[in-house]
Design a protein around this nucleic acid. Structure first.
Lengths: 341, 341
DNA sequence: CTGTTAGCGCCTTCAC
DNA sequence: GTGAAGGCGCTAACAG
């Protein structure tokens, strides 16, 4: 039932070549010819077969986006942004979830980079170290979103995690908090992102002349549930915390809930800052102060690089730093101020 | 650089046909031959070109999932489920966002159904009415997730919205609430889903002998921000509400926040129930009572139907009803009970 | 059991 | 300015 280029050609009484020329707006077609062919095109409702076209051209105009988990708001919002912008650029996005599991990240990346379906891959990794990525089979361009890992030889787009974390913690310190804890980061060794945020945390405390020892709580993963346990752990220690810097909004949401459950008031007793500024964070009670990465720009820059590579751009790995911003809300009001409600 | 079937055939000293046979585990190949070919396959690292294969076979083993907005937790979780299960079935999922805009829904559905990339489409629509979908060009199977709209002639999978809403409201009434309001539903005429939930709400009130008049507040869209306005509107009316049934968890989250901001206590003053049971809802303060549709089953059933249709199954539209459940949490504790902190 | 062959639908180099 | 022909890589009908 599908109408092909030949069908149109027959209908218009010309060769397939000419029809193709019209479809692609090539210059050397007479106006009358063009009109005639266009009429056939319309009346037959010709739809080019993208499979055949891509097979011929060697390009699909499809890219893959690999994220740990689309349900985690940060990745969902990133995916949203990427899909939207890619669409404007004439590209379709396939989304796959890695679960943040290194083995699965590697497998999916390899599969994507070798699959005939896609022209390139955008990968948002947390677990995978640079080593795992340098697979020799990767013939398709890959751009890394988030933290660039040590040995990685891939293009990379992300924010300055150290600076962002430092700002967040400094904000807590300036609000009068002196016993600030850090929450997040799974596994050992720590993933790259957590390591950098932890470094920013340390720097801020050092700059303020505060001790940083023993106030970092690991979490099992990046989901809310694991935050609750870690918070209870932090509260049980002597000399309890009065400030909390969470490595994600998900963790912060879990922490807020856990603090509430044990009767600790936020921000009166403990001030809390998150990371990612998920949409939901402004509707929490109290609303959450958080670090906002410029997601729009992350998507823009990474697509820009990926498409350039797809076009064959050579050269050393790019490393693009994107802006961020600390969005201050209720959860980090200064200690001294009375807070209404 | 890509190694083709012919390359392998040359390397193994056999014909392309035999290589293909080995790749597809066809029975009629001698063991020795098979071993020899397999060796070449491995050493050359042959990867079949899926584009060429699909062009030949007329099947891509890709499906499209159309949702309004991947960032809305309900759709994100649905997408997650679909991607996971499709992957187990050997299918890849392309996700596209319609924004819930009917014109865009129609355009994307048409594009997907005619695109050579996909074998079928899963569509989660809120806005689109049956009429818009019945396009004659749709040559690819389409399954509707969520509410089936009146005239639609498509397969459909969803929960019993009327019954679910009725349960939710009955739960509020049994908790001693007598002035229960409903919140949600955009546009005029109301979308199908909201209409059904509203009907369930009406039934529950009628069954309890309570008046239903004038306690339904429309929202502009399904996002949190619009809930706040609507709630304020409800509170301004004489004889203020003591129970609130929201058509989504997103709206409920916005409502909780708005109630908190004006000093109305939940659940002491007003009990709240949501719909969808998004993951985040159990971490709200107070945690949210909500209707949980069996998402896993929705994904399973819809994929099952879609694949059957792709295989060419004929027949009248299927209409599958999937289970749901009311998950009771803090936000709807009975009026009389004292609720700790 | 295995080799030969003809397309799937499109694009594009080469002639006219 | 337009037509004819070949092939992208794979599969499946037909021989042998």
């Amino acid at each position: 039932v599908a109408v092909t280029l030949r069908d149109v050609a027959a209908h218009a009484g010309v060769s397939a070549r000419t029809v193709s020329n019209v479809v692609h707006d090539y210059p050397h077609v007479s106006t009358t010819m063009r009109a005639k062919v266009q009429a056939s095109l319309d009346s037959l409702e010709y739809k080019p077969n993208l499979l055949a076209r891509s097979l011929r051209r060697g390009r699909t105009r499809i890219i893959t986006l690999l994220v740990p988990d689309i349900v985690v708001p940060y990745f969902g919002e990133l995916a949203h942004e990427v899909v939207e912008q890619a669409s404007d650029l004439g590209y379709t996005v396939m989304i796959d979830e890695t679960g943040g599991v290194p083995a699965r990240e590697r497998a999916l990346l390899e599969a994507a980079a070798e699959s005939s379906w896609v022209d390139g891959v955008l990968m948002s990794s947390i677990g995978l170290s640079g080593r795992g990525l340098a697979g020799p089979g990767s013939r398709k361009p890959v751009v890394l979103l988030g933290e660039r890992t040590a040995r990685s030889t891939l293009d990379h787009v992300g924010i300055d995690n150290v600076a962002a974390a430092e700002e967040a913690v400094t904000h807590l310190v300036e609000g009068g908090r002196t016993r600030v804890a850090a929450l997040g980061g799974a596994g050992s060794p720590l993933d790259a992102t957590s390591r950098l945020r932890l470094r920013g945390y340390d720097r801020a405390l050092k700059a303020a002349g505060l001790p940083a020892e023993g106030r970092h709580a690991l979490t099992e993963d990046y989901r809310r549930s694991s935050a609750a346990l870690a918070v209870r752990d932090l509260l049980d220690r002597p000399d309890p915390l009065d400030g909390l810097f969470c490595f994600s909004d998900e963790l912060a949401a879990g922490a807020l809930r856990a603090l509430h459950d044990v009767g600790v008031r936020v921000p009166e007793d403990v001030a809390v800052v998150g990371f990612d500024d998920a949409d939901a964070s402004k509707y929490l009670t109290p609303s959450l102060t958080s670090v906002l990465p410029d997601r729009r720009e992350i998507a823009r820059a990474s697509l820009d690089i990926l498409l350039k590579r797809i076009e064959g751009a050579p050269g050393k790995p790019w490393d693009v730093r994107v802006p961020h911003e600390l969005v201050v809300r209720e959860s980090s009001a200064p200690a001294e101020m009375a807070t209404p409600s």
